[in-house]
Every structure is written in C-alpha cells, then in structure tokens.
Design a protein around this nucleic acid. Structure first.
Lengths: 202, 202
DNA sequence: TTGACTTTGTTAGCGGTACTAACATATGTG
DNA sequence: CACATATGTTAGTACCGCTAACAAAGTCAA
C-alpha cells in the first residue's frame, strides 16, 4: 500500500500550489510569499509551476479567484438563511462579508486592494459582479421592487460600500484601537436601517 | 555657474528617494517599484539609500506617511471651505477623500490596503487617527453635539466607512463598469442624508 | 506490446533585487 | 588644520522570477 510514495509526477500540483500560496499569504501577508517557497512546501522544484501557470501573476489570479468563490458562497448561504423581506437578512449578508474579511484577511486585501493593481482579469471582475448581484437581489426583494429600479441600485451600492469600508478599516485595527465606540452589530443595524427603512411598502 | 554639477554628496537624497518611489508607485502600481529603480532615477548607487533608511519597508513607510499628510491637509481644507452646520460641508469632506484616492490611487491603496500588511507603525496609525478626528469634529459641529457623544461617533464612523468603501470600489473600476447606476454626487448626498438628517436640532 | 507524442517533472543558468561590508569623499567643528 | 561624522561608492552574497534543455511518466493507436 503506497500512501505517498514519491512519484515523479505530482498528480495535483496546480491545486496544491494555489493552496500553498493561499496559506503563505494568510500567514505572511499579501506580499509575503514566493513561488520558490510554495514549491518547497509542495516538494517540487522551482521550475515546476511554469508547466501550469504563465507567471507569478497568473498564480495569484487563481488564488484570488478561489477566494472570491468562497466568499460568494458564504454570502449566498447567509442570505438564504433568512426569508426575503426580513431585515436581518441584510444584516446577515453584511456579516458574512465581514466574516470572510476577518477569516481570510490576506486574500481579502488582495481581492479588493488589487495588490499588483491594474489587474486586467475579466474572470475576476465577473466574479465581483456576481457578488454585487446577490446584494442587488436581496435589496430588491426587501424593497419589493425590480432589480432594475435605480433606488434599489443606489441602496445596494450604499450598503456594499458601508460594509466594504467597515471590513477594510476593521482589518488594520483602525476601527478597534482608535476612538470608535460603536459596536459592529449596532453599526450594521444602523446602516441597514439608514438605507432600507422598513416602512417601504409602495 | 554650476547648476547641477555632479556632487559626491547629493544634498537631499532622502526626500528625493521618497519622491521617486512615490512616482514609481503611481506609474507602475503599489508593487511596481524597487529601491534600485528609485536609485537610478535619483542618480545614485543602489547602496546609498541605506544611509537614510533601514530597509525597504522603512522607505515605504515614509512614502505612505507623506501621502497621509497630504490627504489630511486636503480634508482639512475641504472642511474649512464651508461653515459648520452646512450639509455641503460633509459632502465636501467626502469628496476630498475620494479625490485623493483618485489622484493618488497607488498611495491610497498602500495607505489602507496595508500592502505589506501587519505594518506596526505607530506614526501611521496616529496619522490615521488624526484624519478620523476631523470627521468627528465636523459631524459633532453639524449635529450640535459633543465630540464624545456616541451618536456622533457612530455616524462619523458610518460616514467614514461609506466614503472609504466607495473610494476603494471606485478605484478598480468596480463601480464604473458594473451595473452601478447611481452618480457619485447622488451617492454622497444619499449617504450624508442617511446618517445626518438635517432635522436634528435638539 | 510497442513506439511516438504529450504532459509534467528536473537541473542549470541568466538577470534583477535587497541588503551588507569595506572603503572613499565631503562636511563641519574644535 | 585635524579629526569625527555623514554620506556617498564598489564589490559581493543570497534569493527570486523565469527560461532552456533535458528526462521521466502517462496516453493512445497500430
């Protein structure tokens, strides 16, 4: 019975490299990784990755993309946990966003800080669009309006910004250690109430 | 008449290196710079910077710090352009924030994306605190309450998050090219009105 | 089965980068 | 002027991204 007999061909190198890089990013920061180090942890030579990726940036894209998919699933799950119209649904959606940022701060920073900046990756922007679509849909259902309604769009965007802004500021300790006294839960409810007054019935 | 006769001593290397790095960051992205390249543009050897900075990170700190100071001044100037209580004052403050993010996207990303992450720089967090203090003060004056009032704190924080979130999302083109239809001006007024209702008089 | 083709590894090496050590030159102060 | 200090240089180390040339393993049809 060969458990992990050293094979010449790794068998699953591409995915393992992505996972190794992900771990390195979480433990040493968005820039605290190298192809060489990921290779070491995967037990292959430093040239091996180039059979699967064009360059460093392409590896990073894959890592970010996997993060976006995880985040999208978390948001979807959070929204599904409450019925349409329940104000807590919006709050839960925001919480899932923030929770992801807190549990995977390195990837989160890369996803939205654009690390290398000016990344021209259609797949990434497409994934981002998909996540905004979730917010749009939840807001539309909450307000009982069409997803195309400008008011829905504006409020969904405002919610996104408020949640995203808090996520970012909370990460660096900007929110904890300065003079901010409002709790996260209170903040989320304040924001939800501000942009989605429950009196909306027309 | 010696204009720029090659002197052995540069005379102002420290500041010029910071400026060179700043330019490189704006033209090639937050990670698109190297000490070597900055040295080339300053006309010195690659070892020269180490007489002024401990390492790469310390150079970056200085660059980020200078950006924070510029941003703080811009915010202060924007707030000073309107009298206390004028709702446009809040909007102008938010605009100045966004304008800075747009005019210096590279530095902005580093300031809040924490690029290298986990930067333990008291001077940086202190500068950040100072900028939040501006918002607190403006909101307190607007609401006619003390700066210590929890309601002031919560609203100031919400405004900060909303503006910061928009700045970040707007930079990567996430806000322009997706289905977001609300204009920036409308967004700012919506946010301002949501958190600072003009009916506040008690 | 076998033998060609493809895939996925390897080693060796190039050029670029951060940083250090040892040395050289300018500046300022008694 | 003499000497200490500040600020530059050259030379060298170690690491990294990436490529080229080669080797082993998997695939598939005759």
């Amino acid at each position: 019975m060969i458990e992990k007999k050293k094979k010449y061909h790794h068998g699953d190198l591409k995915e393992q490299l992505v996972e190794s890089v992900r771990q390195l990013i979480e433990s040493h920061g968005p820039d605290g990784w190298s192809i060489a180090e990921a290779c070491r942890s995967a037990g292959v030579s430093t040239a091996a990755p180039y059979k699967h990726f064009k360059d460093r940036e392409e590896i990073l894209h894959e890592v970010i993309l996997s993060g976006m998919r995880r985040m999208g699933e978390a948001m979807q799950a959070a929204a599904d946990a409450y019925p349409a119209g329940d104000p807590e649904r919006i709050v839960a959606l925001g919480k899932s966003y923030i929770d992801f940022a807190r549990s995977e701060p390195g990837i989160f920073a890369l996803m939205f800080g654009m690390a290398g900046s000016r990344i021209e990756a259609p797949k990434l922007t497409e994934e981002g669009r998909g996540k905004f679509a979730i917010v749009i849909r939840v807001v539309a259902e909450h307000m009982g309006r069409s997803q195309d309604d400008p008011a829905v769009n504006a409020r969904a965007y405002a919610l996104w910004c408020a949640v995203h802004g808090h996520s970012f500021l909370a990460l660096d300790g900007k929110a904890d250690k300065t003079e901010i006294t409002v709790s996260e839960d209170d903040y989320l409810h304040l924001v939800g109430a501000a942009f989605l007054p429950p009196t909306k019935t027309d």
